[in-house]
């Protein structure tokens, strides 16, 4: 039984293998981009707004609110990164209801790639906010003695991110596979539904954790600075 879509090679050319992970990633990407493009091509700024636009606005606003709740100073800055993480993982997981589809997030290569992106994004955002010196100093907090532990924590949480997502999605696929062989009529459907739920939750967890890491890396500096804006105004659309 194939567990990872990495092993499902669709095309091979001079040692370069095009596996299912990459192909389904492309499918998900194409779906997201096309949907966004079609809807945003006819954006309305007046009173009458199409349902699709409302849907996208709700998605974007919710993500922004979530980022804001974690405590980031400028949600618009993290929106592309965190939002794309969530949308990509959620779409990848939700598409499992389509027969023949293999979620790319079920591949450790994909989750590792996303975790590496987070691993790189955290110091990047932190340096952009505080400068290189400020970022490096955070490894010596609260005392220089903690430097090795800080480095280990940085690496371990990346590993944890990758394995958590991979394990959850992969397990869902495996469980369905096993149940089909044991009780092929009723239980797989239930498990599939449960898989949709866990897939969505995993997308949420992954995005929120990434945001928490980034925010915590930036928060050290916020403590040292005079709190100019402790209650950052939420940019929700409640007032509209």
């Amino acid at each position: 039984m194939e567990i990872s879509p990495d092993a499902w090679v669709l095309y091979e050319w001079r040692g370069l293998r095009l596996n299912a992970t990459i192909v389904f990633t492309w499918v998900v990407m194409a779906l997201l981009v096309l949907l966004s493009w079609i809807i945003t091509a006819r954006l309305s700024e007046g009173e009458t707004v199409s349902r699709w636009q409302v849907m996208l606005e709700v998605v974007v606003t919710t993500i922004r609110d979530q980022i804001d709740e974690v405590g980031a100073t400028d949600p618009a800055r993290y929106l592309p990164f965190i939002g794309t993480l969530f949308l990509f993982i959620a779409t990848s997981n939700l598409l499992t209801v389509v027969p023949g589809y293999q979620p790319p997030t079920g591949s450790l290569s994909t989750t590792a790639a996303l975790a590496i992106c987070v691993l790189i994004a955290v110091p990047l955002f932190s340096i952009a906010q505080r400068g290189l010196g400020g970022y490096l100093k955070s490894y010596l907090q609260p005392s220089p003695f903690m430097l090795p532990f800080n480095i280990i924590s940085e690496l371990s949480r990346t590993l944890a991110l990758a394995v958590r997502l991979y394990g959850n999605v992969m397990s869902g696929t495996v469980i369905v596979g096993i149940l089909i062989s044991v009780a092929p009529f009723f239980f797989p459907v239930l498990m599939q539904l449960l898989g949709l739920l866990t897939g969505l939750i995993q997308a949420y967890i992954f995005a929120i954790l990434a945001m928490v890491y980034i925010a915590s890396a930036s928060r050290v500096q916020r403590k040292t600075e005079p709190e100019s804006d402790p209650e950052h105004p939420r940019t929700s659309r409640q007032g509209d």
């Binding site: 981009v33 966004s36 945003t40 996208l56 592309p80 939002g83 794309t84």
Partner: peptide
Amino acid sequence: LLQRFLYRPIT
């Protein structure tokens, strides 16, 4: 792509 087609226009 999403920044180009989704976040920026919507925001």
